[in-house]
Design a protein around this nucleic acid. Structure first.
Lengths: 259, 259
DNA sequence: CAGTGGTCTAGACCACCAC
DNA sequence: TGGTGGTCTAGACCACTGC
């Protein structure tokens, strides 16, 4: 609200204005915003300018457009993902993927896109230390909270390791998800690493995750290691950026003694 | 490359085309792209359409626009940030903030924006468990690699804890950065947590970090705890999304024994 | 079929940069 | 001063939705 406002593009100012109205509840979560022609008239600008302002709100995840029907204000319950607890809870009766959703009292659902033997992407093969023509088992799924997609998760296991296990079925028969099955095979993970990057959603992700073209998504590259630093699984998570807060915690490493 | 391509907006196709050219080296890193009028002529579309295509490349961090001069292809060396190692190395002779840059053989530089006593934001005060009118010491800085800004980092300490320490000066006199000073005060951190979110760059961040209006940035909320879970410092990092890969690793938590 | 947003254009004016 | 990108407009046509 400074009076010395630097001149700012109209569409940016309009975006600020609309964001204010959303935050103040003038446009309530889940409700429709006024149509673009209406806003254009109200604000005395062309529809293109309004459209451009709304594009900013879309990229930030504040609104979602339904073609032919209107622009809706998103509900924004941010989901907290605690990496350590997530996997530590895997004996508690839910797959790791559903921990966060249930803890927020949302209905959790998993849809499997693919389960089967496959030639893994090179990067995955390298991380799993597969030999040149070795295959992998892939489990591709989409997770929903109250029927809103919250992430895609594609997990790869060395085929030879898991081909006779229940991981080739949709229902693994064991509470606790994939890693509980690995444990029952004697190759339970004991260490994990994750690498996080952010990028714009691809076309496919826009469809699968119901996000807008210019919206950023997290990409988590998760690797599980069994005893002896033997890699036993790689999972690639893609998650709408506006939905998630990623939490990590660790104790300070002991100072190196000798050496 | 499917032949059954769904019709796609021209500007999106043009963005794909330009991205290809960048990746194939037709437009080399650091060089200028053809001007918008040129591209418009070449492709037989209006300049607005080209402009919109380039807006996508900007959001993804592929190009950077210099007004009046042209559009430059960015160099994209991704910087890997290993949270644990970062802080574990703090006795090695550099502030934690510069570890990653030096390991990539880039020139590292830190510019201080502010060092002084301040009333901290509410959220920070809560995290530091400050009493209602207790102040904090803030150290705001910008880190550069080869003169390109790579992140902002604003650290808050309880004022009472550090007012007589060298942390109130720009040069702390101790190798190893702020946490080494805390250690010398007997309140060295032993545990850390980080919470990662992503959002679009604010106006100020666009200036400070030299990023584009619709570009996503990481926000890392870092808290350091001393013995007895006593919070001793909060740092807020803001980093251009396209520059960083964040790495975490941990051992599986032991199964709860009794309880 | 009327209303919504998606996209595209031609033309215009502006701020900024390099020469 | 000419070229660059930034922005805005009016008008147009389209695909999709819901009635």
């Amino acid at each position: 609200m400074s009076l010395i406002e630097q001149p700012k593009a109209q569409f940016a100012q309009i975006a600020d204005l609309l964001r204010d109205r959303i935050e103040k509840g003038t446009y309530a979560p889940g409700s429709l915003m006024p149509s673009e022609p209406e806003l254009a008239t109200e604000l005395g600008v062309s529809r293109v300018t309004v459209n451009r302002a709304i594009a900013l709100l879309r990229a930030a995840g504040h609104v979602k457009v339904r073609r032919g029907s209107g622009t809706v204000v998103r509900r924004l319950p941010m989901i907290r993902r605690d990496a350590q607890r997530r996997y530590a809870n895997r004996e508690q009766g839910t797959g790791a993927g559903e921990v966060e959703i249930r803890s927020m009292n949302l209905r959790s659902r998993t849809a499997y896109r693919e389960i089967g033997r496959t030639k893994p992407p090179e990067e995955v093969a390298a991380a799993l230390e597969l030999k040149p023509r070795e295959d992998a088992l892939v489990r591709r799924r989409i997770l929903y909270a109250d029927d809103e997609p919250t992430q895609t998760a594609d997990t790869f296991f060395p085929w030879a390791m898991v081909k006779s296990s229940s991981l080739v079925n949709e229902h693994t028969g064991l509470d606790g998800g994939s890693y509980a099955v690995l444990a029952s095979l004697g190759i339970g993970p004991v260490r994990f690493t994750e690498d996080i990057t952010v990028r714009l959603a691809t076309d496919e992700e826009q469809r699968l995750l119901d996000v807008e073209p210019t919206q950023p998504v997290f990409r988590i590259w998760h690797v599980a290691y069994a005893q002896g630093d033997r890699p036993v699984g790689v999972t690639i998570h893609v998650m709408p950026g506006h939905l998630w807060s990623l939490h990590y915690g660790w104790d300070d490493l002991p100072k190196k003694a000798g050496h």
